[in-house]
Nucleic acid binder design. Sequence first.
DNA 1: CCGACAACCTGTGAGC
DNA 2: TGCTCACAGGTTGTCG
Length: 274
Amino acid sequence: MPELPEVETTRRGIEPHLVSRTIVSVDIRNHNFRWPIPSDLEATLPGLQVRAVNRRAKYLLVDCGAGNLIIHLGMSGSLRFLPGNTAQEPPQKHDHVELRFDCGGILRLRDPRRFGAVLWDAGPIEQNQLFVHLGPEPLTDAFSAQGLYERSRGLRAPIKAFVMDQRMVVGVGNIYANEALFHAGIRPQTAAGRIALGRYTKLVSATKEVLRLAINAGGSSLRDFVQTDGKPGYFQQQYWVYGRTGQACRACDATIRQIKQANRSTFYCPRCQR
DNA sequence: CCGACAACCTGTGAGC
DNA sequence: TGCTCACAGGTTGTCG
């Protein structure tokens, strides 16, 4: 489920419950994720106090002072915090990892497809091999039209693949790439290297806007998020093109088209996007 | 370096 | 009702 807005919503949901709490135990029921979950987490984490919950790209970083617990939700991952003062339901089939805290609360990771990751890094996180090649955060000034323009010169890859490339900008997945290109009026098949600076300016602001709106929508369900199985974001979101094949464009009434790019579904309006 | 593609794994919904 | 197939929010690794 997660693109950047969902990961950020998750971060905001769990942070207040974790900060300044001490981990008392770790339970890993299935180690077989994208990479094996290190077994020694069950020994190294207990006793550590959480200082902050940060996010870089789609990675959640639980800062424990001595290092960072890195969590990636993959395609199907979700996190829930179960407070200690309530009856706690037993773990379900795909609840693979649990952290128990001194307050009695439990952080529970569910991930049916296990494309996600749980890792530990005791060093400076920006030097981790997963992080060194990451592009700028989309909601900062480091994500700029000028940067995209320069890095795209000479490239023949379609613009959609280009904006989804985490080296160019992080956090833009399939849904929001489609939506941002619609708002920028750019056809997804267009070669990245043939797009002018002015159109990149539109694309950058559209991307920021789409992500901001999605985070706000997720934030509105934050209250429920912690207690329920509620998966915020996608359900309440109204898309302009994503998943709307054959339906009328909300802007011009033309019929939304669907194609395949790099084995991912692409949706666009043939009239609004040129 | 570039770009296309398979692979990882399970659940769900459509169609027969 | 039950089977099969296509497809799903991400990322890495390989190959030409």
